[in-house]
Design a protein around this nucleic acid. Structure first.
Length: 590
DNA sequence: GCCGTTTTCGGCCCGACTGTTTTCAGTCG
């Protein structure tokens, strides 16, 4: 059983306990445990090891036993008993915004509703509005939400909403009364998937800012509107929340709305340890509790003018937003061992790009010009190989023609070095789409899987490792093949791939296309620890998409990477040697 | 159900908005 499945079961228990109106802290314990399994589960090789499980913060004896039962038997008696108390379809009601456990329980107890379909019918004949605690407005809202739920599914690739987000930010910043404006939330943490956008504005004139926001042309409908907070639905379907605060409150609000939730809880608990309470507006002394047995030590509250000041107040180095996932950043910030994360200015070139020769939309010359405009020193062209028929992959003759034209073009270009490469298919058995003597004519080789995704994890892992063992393979591209929200990763053992990359000196790509962002940020600390090098590539099929490198930088930062970990931060004078290193180190088995 | 430099018992983050109320419960983040 995977850690995702185990976390899913714990979430389900939490939801069912909510329906039972259980102790809220017990419910939270299960939610926390689910989160802990997802976060720390990577360090657990065997979920039957009860002792190792209960060492994970947030998992105690009772939940460790349940996880062990799940891992051993594939099922859980406790869950079966809980589930038996409610109709099976009832959990889907939780997917409707505005409905929580209390209301769902009322609908179930009073109207025997246990599915979205039944709820829709009850709303249409007016039964819902008759219930205590419900009314006409609620009933109408539920009707609308059910009708629109497909369009408002609630998860977006960050690339789908980045343009809207940046437009709103700059339009708000252009308002005279806006002193500071930031996009906070998961967007600021550079998550690959976002569920909503959070905008924060410091101003003396909250009413003006709010009015401007809710009437912005990108806004489709208003969900809520109050003096400090308003929520709207944008045309793309994403929900967008605006918070308006004063300049003094701004750093606290910015930290609070950047999150994530677990990071915030830790931050607040550090404030509590110092005798303070932290909310989105300020640090304040804790109210004195006359019943307290011992007096808390109270430290003087320092002045805070920015986020760094807030972290300093609780004895931490500034934690960059991308790391705020409660994923080890507090320990590092306390020990002054946070890495200096890579920045987009550190990138000097990139490798995985396509042209009209295969399935790209621009010529080599146009791609080169666009790369120069971005300030890059070098650009690698890697069109598809012959087996990628759907992508008009190049045969040997066409590849040789492209290599020659790249060499010629290099003599004409000033300030940009082009490298000739190929994105070579890894065939079913792990062999490559071109023989080594062809690969030897190139400056580098990008290897990737584009077919036969349905192998077992063992076969797929063996296939990819065999390809990496070829001395001409410079880098492994999009290592899991995932398309975010569209196609799951194919089964592959990433720790084994990382070990093979370390052993063979193969770089691993961080594919910066927002639909991929593959390899996932959660694996990069492991890769880094093993000494594996990252290469950030846009996989650009047209000139504008070279800018997707920006998304790649975000994910690299989330993966704790520095410029030393990323090969394409090397200047052009050093990258050539690096490209040759692997084929030379193994002697090249040509 | 979890946790402990305040603790093995008694806490557990906390505020905004909505709708249904007539002072607040429910939901959300």
């Amino acid at each position: 059983m995977t850690k995702e499945e185990i976390a899913g079961v714990l979430e389900q228990i939490a939801t069912l306990l909510e329906l039972k109106n259980e102790n809220p802290f017990k419910i939270r314990a299960y939610t926390n445990a689910a989160r802990a399994v997802e976060t720390f589960g990577g360090n657990i090789s065997n979920f039957q090891d009860e002792e190792a499980l209960s060492k994970i913060p947030g998992i105690g004896k009772s939940i460790a036993l349940k996880i062990k039962e799940l891992a051993t038997t594939g099922s859980l008696k406790y869950l079966a008993e809980l589930s038996a108390e409610f109709p099976s379809g009832i959990l889907e009601l939780f997917s409707l915004p505005g409905l929580g456990a209390k209301k769902i329980k009322a609908l179930h107890d009073k109207l025997q509703i246990s599915s979205i379909e039944q709820l829709q019918k009850a709303c249409e004949i007016g039964r819902v509005a008759e219930l205590p605690g419900f009314g006409e407005t609620t009933q109408q809202k539920l009707c609308d939400i059910i009708a629109k739920r497909a369009a408002h599914a609630g998860s977006f690739q960050v690339g789908q909403i980045a343009a809207e987000a940046e437009t709103l930010r700059s339009d708000l910043a252009a308002q005279g009364s806006a002193v500071q404006v930031d996009l906070a939330g998961s967007y600021r943490r550079r998550k690959e998937i976002v569920h909503d956008l959070d905008l924060l504005v410091a101003t003396k004139n909250p009413a003006d800012i709010t009015k401007f926001f809710v009437s912005h042309p990108l806004v489709e409908s208003i969900i809520a509107q109050g003096p400090t907070k308003s929520s709207v639905r944008l045309r793309s379907g994403v929900q967008c929340d605006l918070r308006v605060v004063s300049t003094t409150e701004y750093p606290f609000a910015l930290a609070y709305f950047t999150g994530n939730k677990e990071h915030n809880i830790e931050l607040r608990s550090r404030a509590l340890q110092r005798g303070w309470t932290l909310n989105e507006y300020r640090l304040a002394p804790l109210p004195v509790d006359p019943k307290a047995k011992k007096k808390r030590p109270i430290k003087k509250i320092p002045n805070v003018h920015d986020e760094a000041g807030l972290y300093r107040a609780v004895d931490l180095d500034f934690i960059p937003p991308e790391l705020r996932e409660n994923w080890g950043e507090f320990e590092a910030a306390e020990n002054h061992s946070l890495p200096k994360l890579i920045e987009k200015e550190n990138l000097r070139g990139t490798f995985h790009c396509h042209t009209t020769a295969s399935d790209g939309h621009n010529s080599v010359e146009e791609m080169a010009e666009a790369a120069q405009e971005l300030g890059l020193e070098y650009l690698g062209i890697a069109d598809h190989s012959r087996s990628s028929i759907q992508a008009h992959g190049l045969d040997e003759a066409k590849l040789r023609f492209q290599i020659a034209s790249i060499r010629t073009l290099n003599n004409k270009l000033h300030g940009l070095r082009l490298f000739a490469g190929v994105e070579c298919d890894i065939l079913r058995d792990g062999s490559l789409d071109f023989p080594n003597e062809v690969l030897a004519e190139l400056d580098y080789v990008v290897a990737s899987v584009h077919s036969v995704f349905n192998l077992s994890e063992i076969e797929m892992t063996r296939r990819v490792i065999r390809a990496m063992e070829n001395p001409f393979v410079t880098m492994l591209a999009h290592p899991t093949g995932r398309l975010l929200l569209k196609r799951d990763p194919y089964p592959i053992d990433i720790p084994k791939i990382v070990d093979a990359a370390a052993r063979t000196g193969t770089w691993i790509e961080l594919n910066a296309a927002p639909k991929r962002l593959d390899l996932d940020w959660r694996w990069w600390p492991l890769a880094k620890q093993k000494g594996v090098k990252c290469v950030i590539n846009p996989d650009a099929h047209r000139t504008e998409r070279l800018q997707d490198l920006w998304f790649g930088i975000g994910i690299a930062r989330k993966g704790w990477l520095t410029k030393a970990d990323v090969m394409n931060c090397l200047p052009v004078v050093k990258i050539e040697g690096a490209l040759r290193a692997k084929r030379e180190s193994v002697g090249g088995d040509r």
